[in-house]
């Protein structure tokens, strides 16, 4: 089970901030999300969305372990 975190506009679009989802890889996780919320799945692949696995930015299709924390980070803006 991966702990999935959404930030910024992704959280508003999904209507949730945190969920646990059964998936063994990032692509499997996205497929599980797509099965119930196609609009969210599309947004997760949108421009500028980065993925952090256990608080480190990742690319590609990393494997997920039990208790992995996966965060979807839309374009950032502070200050």
């Amino acid at each position: 089970m991966a702990r999935v975190l959404l930030f910024g506009p992704l959280r508003d679009l999904a209507g949730w901030r945190e969920r646990t989802i059964e998936a063994g890889s990032l692509s499997a996780l996205k497929a599980a999300i797509a099965a119930e919320d196609a609009a969210l799945a599309e947004a997760l692949d949108g421009p500028g969305v980065q993925v952090a696995l256990d608080q480190a930015l990742v690319r590609g299709d990393p494997k997920l372990a039990a208790g992995s924390e996966v965060a979807f980070l839309p374009p950032m803006s502070g200050g």
Binding site: F7, G8, P9, L73, P74, M76, S77, G78, G79
Partner: peptide
């Protein structure tokens, strides 16, 4: 540091 914080630091602003 401010240029970084405005466009690259992990914050989301509404």
């Amino acid at each position: 540091l401010m240029d970084y914080l405005k466009s690259k630091a992990p914050f989301w602003k509404k």
